[in-house]
């Protein structure tokens, strides 16, 4: 890809956000409603709202809990998904129950978790994020492991791959495209669960900060929090894509060559 086509792509990507921001700026410019402050007011509230102290006190704990919950879901989801995917009996036994559990909207879990560990504190919040992220990772891993190519499995059997090699080189890498699909879905769920888990106790965190601002009628400050959430969500998905792009380069190539032939 040369420089001019890269510039063109960048331009296409940021054109709409710029148009929307400009529109927002002018439409809200002379707004007198206290609930719809002008974009200018919101921007001016940013540096006073998100001081270094607040970043350490609210944003960092939120992100740390998200990372812990998401990481936990990734480990448990892939491990459990592999187990279920490899064993037909276990799969037949668990699949209906899993489909049922998956159908429960994760936010409803927050009050239940709170019964056991309370609303404040990290445990409940991390558990809520992990439970929310778990299902897409788990179910996609099951699908990925089940869909492993049998010729590839036969190949690793005839060459007598050791168990760890088989799990890493065949099962894990073979199912990684589906695991990535689940992990991508889980990431946006994770951000949702991160906010929701903070709304109830509202002690610290980004979600808590937004609720506190809203309750004290600090409307521009509330808006800054919402915009910040959007930016964080966007950045996380960019990071995810970069990692996926590098880790699954072989998969893109394989798909392209299959389409080409």
């Amino acid at each position: 890809m040369n420089l001019s086509s890269l510039a063109r792509q960048l331009l296409l990507a940021i054109a709409l956000p710029i148009v929307l921001l400009v529109l927002w700026w002018f439409i809200s410019a002379n707004n007198t409603s206290p609930f719809w402050p002008s974009l200018e007011t919101i921007f001016k509230a940013f540096p006073t709202t998100w001081t270094a102290d607040r970043i350490m006190a609210d944003i960092m704990p939120s992100l740390a809990r998200l990372a812990l919950g998401y990481g936990l879901a990734l480990i448990i989801g892939v491990a459990l998904g592999t187990l279920i995917g490899l064993n037909r009996t276990v799969r037949a036994l668990l699949e209906p129950a899993l489909e049922f559990l998956r159908a429960i909207p994760p936010p409803v879990l927050v009050p239940i978790i709170a019964l056991f560990v309370g609303y404040s504190g990290w445990t409940g919040k991390i558990a809520a994020i992990a439970l929310g992220c778990l299902w897409p990772i788990l179910l996609n891993t099951v699908e990925g492991v089940r869909g492993l190519d049998e010729v590839l499995v036969d190949t690793s059997r005839t060459y007598r791959f050791r168990k760890p090699t088989y799990f890493y080189q065949v099962v894990l890498r073979g199912s990684s495209p589906q695991v990535a699909t689940g992990a991508r879905q889980a990431l946006s769920l994770g951000v949702i669960m991160m906010v929701i888990s903070e709304l109830f106790a509202a002690d610290n965190g980004l979600g808590a900060a937004i609720v506190q601002a809203q309750r004290s009628f600090a409307i521009p400050q509330m808006w800054t929090g919402i915009i910040l959430l959007g930016v964080i969500g966007f950045l996380l998905s960019v990071i995810f894509r970069v990692v996926e792009h590098r880790a699954l380069a072989w998969y893109r190539g394989l798909r392209q060559s299959e389409r080409g032939s």
Partner: peptide
Amino acid sequence: VVFQEYGRSLFPWLTVRQNIELPLKE
């Protein structure tokens, strides 16, 4: 064993060299 389905018996995430080396490693 060399299977008929050549495309499906090679590990697409490994290079040619790595594909040949892996059984020797095992």
